[in-house]
Design a protein around this nucleic acid. Structure first.
Length: 552
DNA sequence: CACTGATGCGCG
DNA sequence: AAAGCGCGCATCAGTG
């Protein structure tokens, strides 16, 4: 049963019930209007009675206020996210009914919202959510791959709930531990505009070694000139290029750059800006990446450096259950392609299995070759090793090759559950894949170079996108289990972080072992949902730790 | 002053 | 050892 929520102009909320008629059609069977302040209680009541799927335009517009009122919901249908999937999906060819032009539903998710206060702005609903809902249901139910599409939109919508819930709870963050980490790495916190002591020392060494007393180390142009003057012939200031030179300036320079990075990206200023009340609350953006991965905004949550993970500290009496899906993308490729040899290789550590198959000599080679196959490497060690994989694992390789050829020809590729790639003309082409520097695909006409780049994108899209679907299913399955076992009160285990193939659950120490078991069960369930009984395993690595740096 | 693009580096 | 996917963010340098 669906309940659609819509904000009315007077600020009240209209709640419409949809049920299936005898013929199986979805019909509105009841409408009520309620004051916004009464909404949480009404939602909680219905949640308990009939276990509805809540339909709303955009989860961040509705769910934070429910959570503030202590109300958690089990399921929803996020119209904005489903719209984004359907409008591109080859599994829903006639959506949107009005045609392909971008409309009011093709928007970013609502921002995290103003801090709770008197003047909180209540955004209007996106236009005609009821019409949009019925059009989406029609598109899904008439799809020739309806089952997969249903799973995709359910998983995507549950992800939207989890994203808001994680922001609501926040990542437990110890300012004290963070400050100690920074002090150990950089020296004590300096005054405004000053460099920390250890950075000053490193910089003094660099300036002396380059005989450049006024050098600004943060200006790449200036740095290159100074290095060249000292006989260090570099064309950029990238770490890996600097590393290749032997000069007294290099070691302190690399040390300086490392410290500068930490200071600027996750130093004291970051701590002041992003951590409040012992919690870091990034804004998660489900579906924010074309492949279906989540994006984040605020505080750089997508790139929490290892150097500061020691500041993610469980509350007293609690612990962090850190779980990671091992070698997820190659396993996804195994499932997608049905490659039996690769399935055998993946019965234990996949890379060791590839070595055992005789394709390559070492685990490191196996990893580089595998990544090269999924990313479309053509050069270097990775490019050289790929053909050796192709001989042993022809089915897996054929799948990514086909995806690449399709993309090069301007075609669309699909994930397992039915998320489709954009077309090159969708204007991701100019700023997207391959638009970066000028890799030495010399001798190719620009059009051919773009085609190759787009082929690498579509090659990777099927794997990365299906991996994102697996991860959503994993998360959704785990959430259901956690709620069934411990409920949703403040004392229950809950997600606090998610990053592509890794999840962190904050749990009372006494139940950590049970959570670990549920994490593994959920991975099995996700594998079944996507690949049925196909012989592909999804092992998870789980660590129970007091702080995040101790995982892995 | 605000902006845009390039650079560099962190994460998966 | 340094090309091969997807991101976000800070900073510099050039432009309007």
């Amino acid at each position: 049963m669906f309940f659609l929520l819509r904000r009315l102009p007077d600020g009240d909320v209209e709640l419409t019930r949809y049920e299936r008629s005898g013929s199986g059609r979805l019909e509105a069977t009841g409408v009520e209007s309620i004051a916004a302040t009464d909404l949480p209680a009404r939602v909680a009541g219905l949640e308990h009675e009939v276990s509805p799927r809540w339909v709303w335009d955009d989860t961040p517009r509705w769910y934070p206020r429910l959570l503030d009122a202590g109300v958690t919901v089990a399921r929803c249908f996020d119209l904005r996210l489903v719209h984004a999937i359907l409008r591109r999906s080859t599994a829903a060819p006639r959506f949107p009914p009005g045609g392909a032009a971008a409309g009011p539903w093709d928007v970013a998710q609502a921002g995290p919202g103003e801090a709770d206060g008197l003047f909180e702005v209540v955004p209007d609903s996106l236009p005609d959510p009821a019409g949009e809902f019925l059009a989406q249901r029609e598109a899904i139910e008439s799809s020739s791959t309806r089952g997969r599409l249903e799973l995709l939109v359910a998983a995507e919508s549950t992800g939207a709930l989890i994203a808001v819930e994680m922001r609501h709870r926040g990542i437990p963050w110890s300012p004290k531990a963070h400050d100690e980490l920074l002090t150990a790495a950089l020296g004590p916190r300096p005054g405004p505009g000053e460099r920390p002591a250890r950075m000053r020392a490193a910089l003094a060494d660099v300036r002396q070694a380059l005989d450049a007393p006024d050098l600004n180390p943060d200006s790449p142009a200036e740095l290159i000139k100074a290095l060249n003057r000292a006989g260090v012939l570099v064309q950029s200031t990238r770490q890996w290029e600097l590393q290749r030179h032997d000069h007294p300036s290099i070691a302190p320079l690399l040390a300086y750059k490392k410290m500068q990075r930490l200071l600027v990206a996750n130093g004291w200023t970051w701590l002041d800006a992003w951590v409040h009340g012992g919690r870091f609350r990034p804004d998660y953006v489900p579906g924010g990446v074309v492949t279906g991965r989540w994006a984040t905004s605020g505080g750089g949550a997508l790139q929490l450096p290892r150097a500061v993970r020691g500041a993610v500290v469980a509350d007293p009496g609690w612990t962090l259950v850190v779980a990671d899906a091992s070698q997820l993308e190659p396993r996804i490729l195994t499932g997608l392609s049905g490659d039996r040899a690769m399935a055998r290789a993946g019965s234990g550590d996949l890379y060791e299995g590839i070595v055992a198959s005789g394709a390559v000599a070492t685990r490191a080679e196996a990893k580089v070759a595998m990544l090269g196959a999924m990313y479309g490497a053509t050069q270097g060690e990775s490019g050289r090793l790929v053909p050796r994989l192709a001989r042993r694992f022809p089915d897996a390789m054929a799948l990514v090759e086909t995806a690449a050829r399709t993309g090069e020809a301007g075609g669309v590729v699909d994930t397992l559950l039915g998320r489709s790639s954009p077309r090159p003309s969708d204007d991701l082409g100019t700023g997207g894949a391959g638009a970066g520097a000028l890799p030495p695909e010399m001798g190719l006409r620009p059009a051919d170079r773009d085609a190759r780049a787009w082929g690498r994108f579509t090659r990777n899209f099927v794997v990365q996108g299906t991996a994102a679907e697996w991860a959503l299913c994993w998360l959704g399955a785990l959430r259901r289990r956690l709620h069934a076992r411990w409920g949703t009160d403040a004392g229950a285990p809950h997600f606090v972080f998610f990053l592509h193939d890794e999840v962190v659950v904050h749990a009372p120490s006494a139940v950590a072992d049970e959570v670990v078991a549920l994490v593994a069960e959920s991975a099995v369930e996700a594998g079944r949902l996507l690949f049925g009984d196909a012989p592909v395993a999804f092992p998870v690595t789980v660590a129970v730790v007091d702080d995040y740096s101790r995982a892995k």
